[in-house]
Simulated assay, not measured.
Amino acid sequence: MNPRAASPQRAPERWPLLDRDDWTGREARHHQRVDALLEGHLHRRRHGIAHPVEDFLFTYYSHRPAQLRRWHPGAGAGLAGGVLPAGPGESFYTEVPGGVALDVDRFLAKRGETASFVSSLLRAVHGRTANLGCFGLHEWAMLYKLRPGEARHSQLPLRLGAEGTDRVVESHRIRCSHFDAYRFFTDEARPRNELRPTRDSQTRMDQPGCLHATMDLYKWAYKLTPAVPGELVADCFELARDVRELDMRASPYDLSAYGYTPVPIETREGKAEYAAAQRRFAERASDLRSQLLRVCELLTADA
């Protein structure tokens, strides 16, 4: 890497520098961890095999496997020696005494608007009480009154059939607060939602119990790369992967051919199982959200 010449910096000159053994060790551990997480997906991709659960993180989100594998120390730390492997994000580094660190001014000049939005959204969600009463009905509303073959995963059978799926939607209160779930509701299901989330209302409406808001921590982490440490991006990816599994197990689809047991949210027992898992995910997400907010604070320190 050839970092651009040093410019006046606000925080980076005061950040500790990792010595070569520290940062190469962290990088190697990150590669090992991410390679294990990606192994199944990359194998299937090479052989043209689709997976209705695990492919989501690579089709819905724009972060590619090679980008996830890339390690950065993140805001708050630099790298001693002034030499980094070439790769994505290198243009955001600059020389500091004894090494290189993130050029905060340059980063904010390009991604400041994103950082401001992410900070506002995460702070708002962090201060709210989790709502655990949605029971994953967004996936059911995405299938309501569809004709055969129109579903996103039309190759998968429905546990209750089309009529049974529609009855679940009709017999439940639906209060989906997440725009990126609501926007996939069928035209017939949309009026049944008690809320009307929009992109502009996301900061007001997202809440920490929402599975999609939790999965989106991965999106916010990679959108702030290289300011976010590689380990934290991987933590958010792993949480999103686990949440996606629950999301689909609680859906109308029959995933038994892929080894998944259903969470039958149409039953009292299934609702209890779903809410308990939701609570555990909200707890994991709270810690990661705090860490991402800390990154935002480091980016704006002394501004």
Rank of each mutant, 00 (worst) to 15 (best):
T198C: 12
R183L: 07
Y61E: 02
S171F: 03
T261V: 11
L121T: 12
L239G: 00
A250I: 13
L298G: 06
V228C: 04
T261Q: 15
C296H: 12
D206G: 12
G99E: 14
R289P: 14
G87E: 10
T165G: 08
C176H: 01
L17A: 09
Y144C: 05
K110E: 11
L102M: 07
E13K: 10
A115G: 09
E27D: 06
G136C: 06
K110P: 00
D254P: 12
R190N: 05
W140P: 12
A285F: 12
E269F: 07
A66T: 03
R26C: 01
Y93G: 01
D247T: 02
A240C: 10
R167Y: 06
V125L: 11
P148T: 10
R249C: 12
D206C: 12
A240L: 10
L246H: 06
A181T: 09
P229V: 01
C296K: 03
E13A: 15
S154G: 12
G270S: 06
S256H: 10
S286W: 00
D55S: 09
R64L: 14
R241T: 03
S62Y: 15
L195V: 07
Q291G: 11
T165N: 10
A75Y: 02
D55N: 15
R289V: 04
R26E: 11
A141D: 08
P252D: 14
G270H: 02
L42T: 00
A50Q: 06
P97Q: 03
W220L: 06
V83C: 09
P85Q: 05
F56M: 08
E194Y: 07
R268C: 01
A189S: 06
E95P: 08
Q202K: 02
E269V: 07
R33I: 04
K219G: 08
P88C: 00
V243H: 10
A257Y: 09
L57K: 07
F92M: 08
S116H: 08
Q207Y: 00
Y61N: 05
L298C: 03
R249K: 11
R284G: 15
G99C: 14
Y182K: 03
W23Q: 00
Y182M: 00
P73H: 11
A162V: 03
R70S: 09
T214N: 15
P97I: 02
S120W: 07
R204W: 14
T186P: 13
F185H: 13
R173F: 09
A141N: 01
L293P: 06
V100Y: 08
G136Y: 05
E13I: 11
L195T: 07
P191H: 11
L293M: 14
E194H: 10
T300C: 01
A181F: 02
R196E: 14
M1W: 09
I265V: 15
K145P: 12
K145H: 15
T59S: 11
D206T: 07
D247N: 13
Y93N: 01
M1S: 14
F184A: 06
P52V: 05
A124G: 01
F117R: 01
E269T: 11
D55M: 11
R69N: 07
C210I: 07
H138A: 11
L146A: 13
L299I: 09
F56L: 07
L293R: 10
T214M: 15
P229H: 00
S201E: 03
